[in-house]
Amino acid sequence: MASELRLSRAKLAAPFARRVEELSGENPYACYQCGKCSAGCPFADHMDALPNQVLRLVQLGDEAALSLSAPWVCASCHACGVRCPKGVDIARTMEALRVLALRRGITPTPVRPDRPYPQIALIGAYRKLTP
């Protein structure tokens, strides 16, 4: 994740944040970066950007959010959403990012089963991780 923040009018007016908002049904601007979501995320250790940082990129209209690993490590457990003091269900924002990426042909974690898996595992993986 970039350590330097470069803001521009163009970025802030870009349709990206609106699109994520539409797809997720969650208002990214409600987030005030308290970090509770990231503190409670059981997968944060494996993410290249913490959940609150992902939301920040969305707020800034930065499409770099689409090339992060974070949405693909998120397992939609909703631990973030139930503890968010602003009621942002961040799992939905993560889903919107996955969906946007998948629809653009970005598939960082393709499903190639290496052994027999129960239905419940494969169905979940295909639905969340393949276009």
Binding site: P116, I123, Y126
Partner: peptide, 11 residues
Amino acid sequence: QTLLSLFPELA
């Protein structure tokens, strides 16, 4: 799981 392991896209 025989069918599913050969044709995982069933899922």
